[in-house]
Design a protein around this nucleic acid. Structure first.
Lengths: 148, 148
DNA sequence: TATTGTTATACTCTATAACTATA
DNA sequence: TATAGTTATAGAGTATAACAATA
C-alpha cells in the first residue's frame, strides 16, 4: 500500500482510472447511439437537437449551439436538415429580427416522442447492469455534472 | 410507485437515465480530452492509438483498428501521421508479409510516458468527485465493460 | 480465392473567418 | 459598432468500395 510503485497500473489514481473507463464505455456505446439515430434516418446530433427543442420550446439558434456544445455555424446545417424534413421551423423573433426562434412542428413532436421511447432502451454496457447499479451510476453521474 | 405514469420524467428507467447522464458527462469532458491531445500536437485518436501501442507491443494495423473501434482505412491515416512524426514504425511481419507490425520508437515511448502523466489529471466532471465516488464509479464502469 | 493494408471518395462533425441583416 | 445567423472553407473521424501485394 505504501510502496513507491511509480508506474504500475495500481499507481494510477481513481480519477484517472474512472476517466479512462468512462472513455471505454462511451466508445463501446457510441455505435449503439448511431444505430438508433440511423433507425430514424437522423444523425446523433440531430437526435440531440430534437431532444433539446422538445424541452425548452422556443429556442434561438445560438442557445441550441450552447446546449449542443458546438459552434453556431454547425447549428445552421443541423437545423437546415431538420427543417427540410419538416420537423422544425425557424421563426424570426418579433422583438429582434436577427434572432431565429426554433419551434418543433407536429411531425417533429411525433418523431421526438418515438425517439424518446426508443431511447428508453440503453446500450448493452448499461442495460446489462442491475437496476441497483444503474441507479448508483445515475447518482454518481449527476454528482459529476452538478460539480461543473 | 405503482402509478401508470407513462411519460413523466420519473417514468424513465434507471438505465435510460444513466445512458443520458453518461452522454452529458462525456459531452462535457470531450473538449478536455481534445485540449490535452492538442497540447501534444495530437488528436484524441492519435493519443489513444499511442496508448494501445504502448501496451501490447507489436500490433498489426487490423488489431489497432479493432481496439480503436474504427475501420482499417482510418488506421492507415492515423499511423501515417504518427510515423511521419517518428513516433511509430511499420515493420512487415516475417511470416505473413501482408501484415504490418506496428512498434513504437524511442521518441514514441518518451512522448507516451509524458501523455500518460498528463492523463492522470481527469476532466473537471470527474476530478471534482470525491475519491470514494471516483472509486465507486470505477467499480460500476468496470462492471459495465465486463458485461459486454 | 481470400486477406491485409492502401487509396479514392464521401459524409458528419467541428471550427474559423468573412459576410448579411439587423440592432 | 456590435450581434445573430449564414456561407465558405478546412481538417478530423468515420465508412464503403476498388485495388495491390501476398497468402
Amino acid at each position: 500500500m505504501t510502496e513507491p510503485n511509480t508506474r504500475a497500473p495500481e499507481a494510477t489514481s481513481a480519477g484517472a482510472r474512472a476517466w479512462h473507463l468512462m472513455y471505454e464505455v462511451w466508445k463501446a456505446s457510441k455505435p449503439y447511439l448511431e444505430t438508433v439515430a440511423a433507425g430514424f434516418d437522423l444523425t446523433p446530433q440531430q437526435v440531440y437537437a430534437l431532444r433539446q427543442l422538445a424541452n425548452e420550446r422556443p429556442l434561438a439558434m445560438s442557445e441550441l449551439a450552447t446546449t449542443l456544445g458546438c459552434d453556431a455555424s454547425n447549428v445552421t446545417a443541423i437545423v437546415d436538415k431538420l427543417e427540410a424534413r419538416g420537423l422544425v421551423k425557424r421563426h424570426s423573433a418579433d422583438r429582434d429580427r436577427r434572432v431565429k426562434a426554433l419551434v418543433m412542428t407536429e411531425a417533429g413532436v411525433d418523431l421526438q416522442t418515438r425517439i424518446e421511447e426508443r431511447m428508453e432502451q440503453p446500450p448493452p454496457a448499461i442495460a446489462n447492469l442491475s437496476v441497483e447499479d444503474q441507479q448508483a451510476l445515475c447518482v454518481l453521474l449527476e454528482r459529476a455534472l452538478d460539480a461543473l
